Simulated scan of single mutants.
Amino acid sequence: MSREARWQALLELLVERGRLDVEGAAKELDVSAATIRRDFDQLAEQQMLVRTRGGALVHGVSYELPLRYKTARKVSEKERIAKAVAGLITPGEVVGLTGGTTTTEVARALTLRPDLADGAPALTVVTNALNIASELAVRPQFKIVVTGGVARPQSYELVGPLADGVLDQIALDIAVVGVGAFHVKHGASAHDEGEAGINRLLCEHAARVVVAADSTKLGERAFARICTTQQVDVLVTDTGLSPEAAAQFSDAGVEVLTV
């Protein structure tokens, strides 16, 4: 196992369990305890975790993995969600895409639609995510509009007042929003207030708002609110969402699609 893969696995376990001990992590990943100690020390230096005697803790109550470490989480669920979201988009529309692993998969799913492959730009995509813009910019079927702003290394998203200035002058047919959490009572939220602010503007300028989120993010809260539940038209998620939770979102006026 490469160091990158090992670090990703350790961070995944930390997010899931809250704490890890050296011996247990070494056994689980089938490496030496010395390797895990070295990994913990190096990750602590990057402020990715908190080092403790004999182990490690997640870094803070509002823990956010950088995008490069989140790409392997819920892969099949995100691909199904992305395909379903892409199917909600009509040729000729102006689409807002926030950053995140699920919305990145939505961008990739759009490139696979044959009805968007021919001729002049079939979609206008407005995004503050540098990775999404770079993937779509080489494809002539998409007109790409990138907001200004300062890049966050954790998510490759542009945030700040420069992005606000662009978004204040556009109108979107649909905004596809990746979230840190989505709760019936507390709405959609993100771990970073800058990202939440840009996502909020995308929602405010869109005729329709679609939240694309795997079921682990539902019923949870994150630090900064993006929008209220009432502002969301459609939630696309995986079948891990319980019927009871789906009914709560439906009762709040959100169309729920599980895939």
Score class of each variant (00 low, 15 high):
residue 249 F to A: 02
residue 247 A to T: 12
residue 111 T to V: 14
residue 233 D to V: 00
residue 89 I to H: 10
residue 25 A to V: 01
residue 73 R to F: 11
residue 180 G to H: 11
residue 90 T to M: 14
residue 76 S to W: 14
residue 242 S to R: 03
residue 121 P to S: 13
residue 183 H to R: 05
residue 185 K to I: 15
residue 180 G to A: 14
residue 186 H to N: 14
residue 204 E to A: 08
residue 212 A to W: 07
residue 124 T to S: 01
residue 190 A to N: 13
residue 245 A to V: 07
residue 135 E to H: 04
residue 17 R to S: 13
residue 154 Q to M: 06
residue 236 V to G: 03
residue 113 R to Y: 02
residue 22 V to K: 07
residue 123 L to S: 08
residue 109 A to W: 04
residue 252 A to R: 10
residue 255 E to G: 04
residue 182 F to C: 11
residue 193 E to M: 13
residue 205 H to M: 14
residue 252 A to T: 09
residue 130 L to E: 10
residue 47 Q to W: 11
residue 164 D to L: 02
residue 259 V to F: 15
residue 58 V to Y: 02
residue 107 A to V: 00
residue 103 T to P: 03
residue 130 L to C: 09
residue 108 R to T: 02
residue 79 E to Y: 08
residue 200 R to T: 14
residue 99 G to V: 13
residue 75 V to W: 01
residue 112 L to Y: 10
residue 121 P to Y: 10
residue 234 V to M: 08
residue 101 T to K: 02
residue 252 A to G: 05
residue 72 A to Y: 06
residue 210 V to P: 02
residue 91 P to Y: 04
residue 116 L to D: 00
residue 25 A to F: 00
residue 173 D to K: 01
residue 30 D to P: 00
residue 164 D to Q: 02
residue 140 P to K: 11
residue 256 V to F: 07
residue 138 V to F: 09
residue 12 E to K: 12
residue 211 V to T: 12
residue 193 E to N: 03
residue 102 T to M: 06
residue 38 R to F: 02
residue 235 L to G: 07
residue 147 T to Y: 08
residue 26 A to K: 11
residue 40 F to Y: 01
residue 3 R to V: 11
residue 125 V to R: 04
residue 77 E to T: 08
residue 215 S to E: 09
residue 134 S to D: 03
residue 26 A to R: 10
residue 246 A to M: 06
residue 188 A to V: 01
residue 102 T to A: 05
residue 127 T to A: 13
residue 75 V to D: 00
residue 256 V to A: 13
residue 140 P to A: 08
residue 30 D to N: 12
residue 124 T to V: 04
residue 84 A to P: 04
residue 131 N to D: 11
